[in-house]
Simulated scan of single mutants.
Amino acid sequence: MTPALFLLLLLLLPAAAARRPASAAAYDLLHPAMTYRMPTALRELSGICVLPKQRVACVEDQTGTIYVYNLSTRRIEQTIPFGPQGDYEDVAQIGQDWFVLRSDGTLFKRSAGRTTTYATGLDQANEPEGLAYNAAGKALLVACKGAAGVGSPDQLRAVYRLDPGTFRHGLKPAYVLNVAQLTAANVAVNRFAPSAVAVHPKTGHVFVAAASGNALVELDAQGRVLHVEKLPRNLFPQPEGLSFAPNGDLYISSEAGNTKTALIQVFTFRATP
């Protein structure tokens, strides 16, 4: 290699690094920028969705109510009843419409004061737990804690894409997670059962959290594993919720577990230099 070529490569390296997509490594998951302790009504906090104006929508796994929590006042400022008591897992918003996922795979849509239910085709055997809207694909994603379909090896976990019109899941998962592969990528992770899913607003990458295994995984748009990180249990007692602010800041919620209160923690997005 000539000296001139070597110098050219050195000049190009920073530009190449700048084009690398952000990853979970862009978050310092040991040091939250903010920590919010949830009120008693949200002790069983199971899913979150970041809203404008410093607000977060929350659901818990007992009542059919969406709670709008104001991060500035640290109070619940609105409650939106949408259904009967049930085991609700996650919440998402598309425009003015609310969507809530129940553990039996039923999807609740709350729109203009009216609730409609949809059978997604997923059921309690799939253990659907995570719900998120993928704006690029204009479809909801559902992350499942159970095995990825009938006959699939127990080491596989699936994220399904719901049809925007029928809200039925596709015959094949949108993303498949191989637990053995995740364990190989990070030896501290010895199991992984998804509890939440979210799509990064800047990169389109899919983030999946697991309360069983206490870990966070990042996938690219093609489903390739980019990063696997262990979440220490002392900071994340039971990570059940995952959401992003438009600027890329990451919100992770944990059920109370053995602690007195549920938590929402915010992690600042640090764009890859």
Rank of each mutant, 00 (worst) to 15 (best):
T2A: 03
T2E: 07
L10N: 02
A16M: 12
A18V: 12
A18L: 13
A33P: 02
R37V: 12
R37I: 09
A41H: 00
L45Y: 02
S46C: 11
I48P: 04
R55S: 05
A57Q: 05
T63V: 12
G64C: 04
I66R: 06
N70P: 06
P81L: 05
P81I: 07
G86W: 00
D97E: 05
T106R: 00
L107Q: 05
R114D: 06
T116G: 01
A119Y: 00
Q124E: 10
N126I: 00
P128H: 07
A132Y: 02
A139F: 00
V142C: 10
A143F: 08
K145E: 03
S152W: 03
Q155R: 15
Q155Y: 11
Y160H: 10
P164T: 10
Y175W: 08
N178Y: 03
T183P: 05
A188K: 15
R191K: 09
A193D: 13
V197E: 09
V197L: 09
A198K: 09
V199H: 03
P201W: 01
P201N: 07
F207S: 08
V208A: 13
A211V: 15
D220H: 05
D220A: 08
Q222D: 12
E240W: 04
L242H: 07
A245Y: 01
A245I: 13
D249A: 12
D249Q: 05
E255I: 14
A262N: 04
Q265M: 14
V266M: 05
T268I: 00
